[in-house]
Amino acid sequence: MYLIRSIIRPEKVNEVLSELLSAGFPAVTKMDVYGRGKQKGIRIGDVTYDEIPKEMLLMVVKDEDKDDAIKIIMKYARTGANGNYGDGKIFVSPVEEAYTISTKTKEL
């Protein structure tokens, strides 16, 4: 299993979630987050915004589904034909174990 953490623009969240659901990925955790990437924030006039609002999507997928989930996020979180700075980032980590609390069962 893999944990996929994607940080994307807020205006792209509904589209990404809809496409993930359509592709058979219903289980996603969504969080409001703030931060900055390589662009070091946004400067508008004399004001610099270094805490830019984003959304973080967390999902655990089976090994064989990892690439499909990443492709969906990449396709629908991207802005413009060639993408733009601030479109986001995807982080993938292995998950060693997972448990369902209500049933006390270990997930495979």
Score class of each variant (00 low, 15 high):
K30P: 00
L17H: 00
M74Y: 08
L108S: 14
S18L: 04
L58A: 10
D50N: 13
K89Y: 02
A27Y: 09
M31S: 14
I70K: 15
A23Y: 03
F25Q: 05
Y99I: 10
T79V: 15
Y76E: 08
E96C: 03
E96I: 12
T29P: 00
D65Q: 14
A98I: 03
P94I: 00
V47L: 12
K54N: 11
T48F: 09
I72R: 10
I7T: 11
M1Q: 05
M59W: 00
Y99H: 11
A27R: 09
E51G: 07
N14I: 03
I42L: 15
G35V: 02
M31T: 09
V13I: 06
T79C: 12
A23E: 13
V13G: 03
E19L: 06
A81W: 08
A27G: 11
E51Q: 14
K89V: 07
T29C: 05
I7H: 02
N82S: 12
P10A: 03
T79I: 09
R78T: 12
Y34M: 10
G24V: 05
R43Y: 01
L20P: 04
I70V: 15
P10D: 02
K12N: 00
V61H: 03
N82L: 14
S102F: 11
D32G: 01
S18H: 13
V16E: 04
R5S: 14
A81K: 15
P94D: 07
R36H: 12
L21R: 13
E15G: 06
N82P: 00
G37L: 10
M56R: 13
G88I: 04
I72K: 08
M1N: 06
E15F: 00
K75P: 06
T48A: 13
G83W: 02
E15L: 13
D32S: 14
E11H: 11
E51M: 11
Y49G: 03
Y49L: 15
R36D: 03
P26H: 07
G80M: 06
P94W: 03
V61R: 05
K106S: 05
Y76N: 08
D46S: 14
F91C: 07
E19R: 15
E97C: 06
K104A: 08
K38I: 10
I7R: 00
G88Q: 07
R5A: 12
L20F: 06
E11T: 01
